[in-house]
Design a protein around this nucleic acid. Structure first.
Lengths: 147, 147
DNA sequence: TTGGGTGCAAACTATTTGCATTCGA
DNA sequence: TCGAATGCAAATAGTTTGCACCCAA
């Protein structure tokens, strides 16, 4: 847990070589497609579906296929660069902020919002099944406009 | 919150007319397909995907289509008979236990396990966006066998 | 030259939709 | 009789897979 992640960096958009270094530091070969996607993801903290990433990345200068966006987001998540958020049954969101925090899910708009981890307290955890290890604790508050 | 739900009933499988009454009490017309599905769901507390429900219901005496299973589970969830659990990115689970509780998700097996609500404490909630109301708070502990 | 890594077209599958049919008033 | 509700075949859309290509050793 000594990895500072992308968020230890400056608030300005990261330069191309900073992105390349970040990918390398996570054991990811920095290809053209991956740099494009990472560049976009780390412009700021955001919650994006694969489709939104595809659209935005290709709006710039294109050349990245749908499958590659999916595979790359999965790879980034595996390597701990971004965080998968399972909140909307229709699609997976990827959160470019990997610091510990939780989420509010707007069921009407289908959008996510961060909650500081300190605003939620998770107390006692139950005994886990044998040989199992906690990968993460997700707290999702589902909100909507009253019907 | 005065609705006792199906769990106020006996531990034995509910009889057909008890299921019919339960559906009616929730404003659901008790058709053949819906009764078949409800009968199966409320045999015991369980976490099932739509596909598992389809298979099990049709293994008995059949006659329920895939689309109807999906639509019926959605209807039951809307009416508060069962609870949707969003934990596995690949499929939605339906929990026949609607009492407040949380879940452990086994990432290797893709299965859910209940946690008593009392084993997890959610402290301060943040201020919600204007005009929004909390539909539910989901806590999911993701576990897996260490790699 | 060769073997693992990469990108993507095509395939796959969970879920939704549109509509013919049925049901209750 | 008639409008609303129901069930399902077919369509949709998010995601995964299989394979041609590329590159470092």
């Amino acid at each position: 847990m000594t990895d500072p992640g992308p968020h230890a960096m400056t608030p300005e958009p990261m330069r191309g070589d900073a992105i390349v270094a970040l990918l390398r530091a996570h054991g990811i070969t920095p290809t053209y497609q991956r740099v494009q996607i990472a560049q976009f993801l780390f412009e700021r903290d955001q919650h994006l579906s694969a489709d939104q990433v595809l659209e935005s990345v290709n709006a710039r200068h294109a050349g990245v296929s749908k499958a590659t966006v999916y595979n790359t987001l999965g790879l980034f998540a595996d390597k701990g660069l971004i965080r998968e958020v399972i909140a909307d049954p229709a699609r997976v969101f990827y959160d470019s902020n990997t610091h510990p925090h939780h989420h509010i899910f707007d069921m009407d708009r289908g959008t996510l919002q961060d909650i500081p981890a300190t605003d939620v307290t998770v107390g006692t955890l139950p005994t886990l099944p044998e040989g199992m290890v906690v990968e993460g604790v997700d707290v999702i508050i589902r909100v909507r406009r009253p019907r």
